[in-house]
């Protein structure tokens, strides 16, 4: 993954380099729910592995890009098709409530889970007013 991220940076921050064959780009379905500590985001990314997943935070935008891998042998003949192999792409605007530095993510059984912790609110600070 780190290699891909480096490569992405070299290509001028384009997350999806143009593949030789046209691939479909899908918007993955997501759930977002609140916990006491922050927000949990889950995205369905079937067929995506750790090697083909990129997650990036830039400014206040979180972008996920996942490449679905063809999981059947080359000599398999397609008889019936209801889903296509493609890429998943979706971006989110993060609010100031989210602690950008401590975003954590894991990928289990084709589901990406991103933990977006709440940022600590700075303590109120007393400002001394001086008289002249």
């Amino acid at each position: 993954m780190s290699n891909e991220l480096t490569q992405t940076a070299k290509n001028g921050n384009t997350l999806a380099p143009h593949p030789p064959v046209e691939r479909h780009v899908f918007t993955p379905p997501i759930d977002i729910y609140e916990t006491d500590k922050g927000l949990i985001l889950r995205a369905d990314l079937p067929g995506v592995s750790l090697d083909t997943l990129e997650l990036q935070v830039q400014d206040n935008k979180l972008t996920l890009f996942g490449r679905m891998e063809q999981s059947v042998p080359d000599n398999a003949r397609l008889l019936h098709q209801e889903y296509e192999v493609g890429d998943f792409l979706r971006s989110f605007i993060l609010s100031d409530e989210v602690d950008h530095q401590h975003i954590a993510a894991k990928l289990i059984n084709g589901v990406l889970e991103v933990v977006l912790p709440k940022a600590d609110k700075p303590e109120p600070r007393r400002i001394q007013v001086q008289t002249t």
Partner: peptide, 28 residues
């Protein structure tokens, strides 16, 4: 990806020399 009237989960069916292969998208 999931529309009224569409079956869930979506499946693909492949034929190989010695077997049939069904793949289904079931994340999670």
């Amino acid at each position: 990806g999931l529309r009224f009237g569409r079956q869930y989960p979506p499946v693909n069916l492949y034929e190989l020399p010695t077997e049939y292969l069904i793949t289904a998208e079931l994340p999670g």
